[in-house]
Write a protein that binds this DNA or RNA. Sequence first.
DNA 1: CTGGGGAAGGGGCCC
DNA 2: AGGGCCCCTTCCCCA
Length: 508
Amino acid sequence: MAANCMVFHTQIASIMEVLANAAVAEICKLVDDDYAVFRLEITQSQKENSALRRKLQLLELKLSRERVLASRPRSVKILDRYRGMARGEGHLTGGHRSFVKPAGHNTWRDDQPITVDEGSGTSTQHVIVIESADAEAAGPGVKLERSEGEEDPRHSRDTQTRVAAEPHVATKDPPTIAPAPPRTRHRITEVSGTQNAVLKSETDTDTLTVTHRLLHTGSDHKSDPERLGKGPLRYPPAPGTEYLPVFHQSQRMVHSRGDGDALDTGGDDPSCSYSTEMDPGNISLGLETQTDLSREDWNQYNSGLYSEGSLDKKGEGLVIDEVTVKVEGDAPLTWNVDKTHLGEGYSQGRDFLDYRESLETNPNVTTHSPLHTVRDRESVSTSMGPSDSHNHVLFDQVLNSKGQRAKGRGGGATSGNSKEKRFLCMFCNKGFSCLQKVEIHQRVHTGEKPYSCMQCHMRFAEAGNLKRHQRVHTGEKPFGCTQCHMRFAQAGHLKRHQRVHTGEKSYS
DNA sequence: CTGGGGAAGGGGCCC
DNA sequence: AGGGCCCCTTCCCCA
């Protein structure tokens, strides 16, 4: 019995061992399996982590790149933006560009004005400024950086005074522009290189915009509302500058005119009238080319010039367009009157030059120069007198050889009745019976033509001539020949024509 | 010979 | 009466 128990226990023990081993094995197997799964999961997780990490790195890298790009985006945007502008409309085409940053701002804004200078004649390209605080601190206003080409200070600059800047920007004839006291900050940018260069000037404080156009070729600047735009650039003369009186007169007339009613002839033809308004194109230029201060200068100048002018007394409306003085290139200042204003074939400009030459060579003529007239004849009534020394040149220039014709017709101080003709022309000394006569006469010298035909823009110094001219448009021929059917617009023509019938010779 | 314009003279009107 | 202004006339030149 005991032995059986022993065997039984032994068997049980062996069974238990087997079972234990089996259990261990099972456990181990389970552990191994789980471990493998776990390891697999871990591996996968690690891979995912790695992938995510790489993603993250990529993202960071991308982000950092964007940050780098974002650290200097403005210039790029500006370049793109203004390249787009340059590709765009109007004058923003061509190769020569300069971008002018508005003064007083560190950054470009959409609403900021930008001046883009264009010139078709050069391939130089001006590239946008990369702004920096240093540069801004160095000087507000225009900052110009160019990718290539040498700096051309003409093209864009900030100026303290408009007048002071003009010689650089506007004209290649600096001596004609005299500096003026600093008044306001202007930003003037010249657009050059084209036939019609444009100068823009803006004040920082005003809305004033001055637009000039330069004439480089001198062609086609007549009979066109845009002619002044195409015409030569002239600045309103600052005191002390050399300017031609007809121009001053024009400005004076423009600014001194009242309601402009006086010269209405009562005619029914609206097309031809003693216009009381300037041509719109002329207005634009005439006004734009002047600052308020310039107007004051004009008025001051002209009030002196016309100190006794009867026209001012009545404030008569006289239409005056600018008579432009052309100064081309480096040529010396010459008196060259725009024929548009003086009429086709008007030769006063040449006459002025001729007379100027005669002044230099003919002492007798010099004796009768306006300057001498004023100095020597202070007691003589003149409707027009140089008010200051700088006008000397002006009046020297405007002396006209046509005065000789007047002399030939009985003109001259000594030819007329000194009692009746006590009003003397300051240019030619011819005497006239009344002030208005001499004023009208002096238009011969000054080129002033206040009366304009609205149909053809012909201009006349005398109202009667304009009225006579109107018949050209109306076809009116009030003077008929009694012996034939010929009709004439002028009485003198009829009279001349009748010699055909009478056999009278017009000349021997 | 005609057409167009420049320029001066004269006269009337108004203040 | 005188002066200023305006208009007309006239002569002349040029194309």
